[in-house]
Amino acid sequence: MTSTELRIENVSFAVGGISILENVNLTVRPGELMGIIGPNGAGKSSLFNCISGIYMPTAGRISLAQQTLTGLSPVAVARRGIARTFQNLALFENLNVTDNLMLGRHRLMKTGFATAAFWFGRARREEVIHRQACSELVDLLGLGAAANLPVGLLPYGAQKRVELGRALAASPDVLLLDEPVAGMNIDETEQMATIIGSIHQQLNITIILVEHDVHMVVGLADRICAINFGQVVTVDEPQAVVSHPTVIEAYLGSEWS
């Protein structure tokens, strides 16, 4: 396996004169689960957007396995094997669960308009193979009963899982998860944490996890990066980060133990 190291070097980003990220440096090792924590508005989601090519950094470089990502379109970034979820759900609401996951597999498939239109051999074969893969994922995520329902009709927690499934369906090398348990109850959070943990262990992919549930991040992450005001405060082992004085002051508060 080639080394899928994700490097973020001196990345800055600004909109309309307001600086949102400043000189962010972060190297995520292959197969690592990197947690990112920081207060609201710190720039965590913006960092994800810079990685996925939705935002164009004003300075700096992002690379995956030594190949530059900065300047690529979101489509090109996706083709390099980076998948993500969004903080505020971004599902294809009118499509059912299976179709949402099948869109995750879009980049792994080839069928174009012409082959699809006449349903030539490959179109059908490809469809069946990838549906198989998706239906396994559907069961893994505990969504079997809802597979053929439009996702817009599902409860919030299930929708969050569909979004994770959609990103996983892409067989990514790097998975960016933006607040996967935000707004979930304790049971749902537990379930999601288990899923993320087992993905990490079994699939051996690099994961970057942005989450306000610090207990969960500490439990799952190999290392944690704390961000405040668009700047990296510290990157270290989970326990070291949560006992870092600046992190406690800016984010965790003194009640944190």
Binding site: G16, G17, I18, S19, N40, G41, A42, F229, G230
Partner: peptide
């Protein structure tokens, strides 16, 4: 393109 950059709530 605001006339003057105003501090955000997070005093950046």
């Amino acid at each position: 393109n605001a006339d003057q950059p105003v501090e955000l709530s997070s005093s950046r």
